[in-house]
Design a protein around this nucleic acid. Structure first.
Length: 418
RNA sequence: GCGAGCGUAGCCAAGUGGUUAAGGCAGUGGUUUGUGGUACCGCCAUUCGUGGGUUCGAGCCCCAUCGUUCGCCCCA
């Protein structure tokens, strides 16, 4: 095929689908603003080292999924694969911490990951996410999770489950990691090949393996929760009780591991039963070390991101949304009438009516047909005779009643019938 | 990066080696040249993603390539 088409893994969002996006954006932003989160918009590309340092060199995202290129100034540039690193960079650069206290930020936009597309996964995809910077409190973790569940509830989504875990402090994780290596090494040859590889690269991931034999072995592996120091443990316990107090159901999942290196303590995912293999609809956690790691003053923080395409997949299963119809379909015939209709349509719009003007120049029958299909309630008809006598026909397309009114009275009549 | 399936009009498709490529929706023209929603009639793929091969003959078989879908890996 030599026609140019959208790049693999990217998608046009056509008008029939945009309605869902608008619905999602409106619902989410309303809830975010109510919790006094403020929208931030950061660039879609950044210097490559931001992601390498922030997300972690060893992660798959950095290792094999980034869209990286050299620009004309010989700088290495990367299309953002996720939102947090850029927001934190901006937070540090503009010294937002200097304004004191706690920052609540949210964002939405396109992210890029070079992966094989499949159900619920694209190379350019969209996330809506939030970051709460400056609080170590368990209440912060819970606030953030509660906002996520609020949004999903407001969207009317069902069959979701909140998976919760703590990956502890950096030190906790270090000792746990060693314990896992010690546990799995004797079984090395019985693990699936992916997991053998993970033994050195990222042993926590082995717990997640879909291979049956590996699962069998992992059953008796040490549990991260047993490796938490006292303060990590009590933080996590608080998060759990506060969630329960708020009536938010969760499932403890000690095998939940997040893919980016910066996570500490609380980690969570919200999973849908109604998607394919890519079922995570929201993922997030605490990242107390990231701000310092990127050169800012020590700032504890927590955030999450939702995959908008995945949410939309669910919304489409839920209820069909249709594009809005015009209030008025304006039909005209003859040069004078056509020109006058243009002027009148413009005037009606300024008075708040949604009006579509038929530009086809075809006969009235055809124009009416189109008007009918447009879904408009009212059809305005202007022809030569109306122009001469200063009147206009107002036809109700639902009951076929047609009135002749003077053009001066048109606005009045329309506001009564719409 | 690996594995499997699929690719016929704007959309949904029938067709599985024999020559004119069903059907439906949508569109469009007409019956009805100042009045829609129904009905009826007409039109709407010299061509089956692309390139090559096998064959007397290919949408149908083979190879390559591109795209797409689903899964693995990974993640939102």
């Amino acid at each position: 095929m030599d026609n140019i088409q959208a790049i693999r893994g990217t998608k046009d969002i056509l008008p029939s689908e945009v309605i869902y996006w608008q619905h999602l954006e409106k619902t989410a932003s309303k809830i975010l603003e109510k919790a006094n989160y403020h929208e931030i918009r950061t660039p879609i590309f950044e210097q490559t080292p931001l992601f390498e340092r922030g997300i972690g060199e060893a992660t798959d995202v950095v290792g094999k999924e980034m869209y990286t290129f050299t620009d004309r100034g010989d700088r290495s540039i990367t299309l953002r694969p996720e939102g947090t690193a850029g927001v934190v960079r901006s937070y540090i650069q503009h010294k937002l911490f200097a304004s004191g206290g706690i920052d609540r930020l949210w964002y939405s936009g396109a992210m890029f990951r070079y992966e094989r597309p499949q159900a619920g996964r694209q190379r350019q995809f969209h996330q809506i996410g939030l970051e709460l910077l400056g609080s170590r409190a368990a209440r912060a973790d819970v606030e953030v999770i509660a906002i996520a569940t609020d949004i999903l509830k407001a969207l009317g989504l069902k069959n979701l489950s909140l998976q919760l875990n703590s990956v502890g402090s950096k030190e906790d994780r270090q000792t746990y990691r060693q314990a896992l290596v010690n546990y799995f090494t004797p079984y090395q040859n019985d693990l699936d090949t992916d997991s053998q590889d993970r033994l050195t690269r990222n042993p926590l991931r082995i717990l997640d393996s879909k291979d049956q034999k590996t699962q069998e072995i992992a059953k008796n592996a040490p549990n991260i929760l047993d490796f938490l120091q006292d303060d990590s443990r009590s933080h996590f316990d608080k998060v759990c009780t506060l969630l329960t107090d708020l009536g938010i159901l969760y499932e403890l999942n000690p095998r939940l591991v997040r893919g980016l290196d910066y996570y500490t303590h609380t980690a969570f995912e919200i999973i849908s039963e109604d998607l394919g293999a890519q079922a995570t609809v929201c993922g997030g956690g605490r990242y107390d070390g990231l701000v310092t790691q990127l050169g800012g003053v020590e700032t504890p923080a927590i955030g999450w991101a939702m995959g908008m395409e995945r949410l939309i997949l669910l919304l489409e299963q839920l209820q069909p949304l249709k594009p809005q119809s015009p209030d008025i379909y304006f039909v005209s015939r003859g040069e004078k009438a056509e020109n006058q209709a243009l002027v009148m349509a413009q005037n009606l719009r300024q008075h708040g009516f949604k009006v579509e003007l038929d530009l086809s120049g075809s006969n009235f029958a055809k124009q009416f047909k189109r008007g009918d299909r447009s879904g408009a309630k009212i059809c305005l008809v202007l022809g030569d005779s109306e122009v001469e006598t200063g009147i206009i026909q107002v036809k109700n397309l639902e009951n076929a009643e047609q009135k002749t009114v003077s053009q001066d009275q048109l606005l009045e009549i329309l506001s009564l019938s719409l």
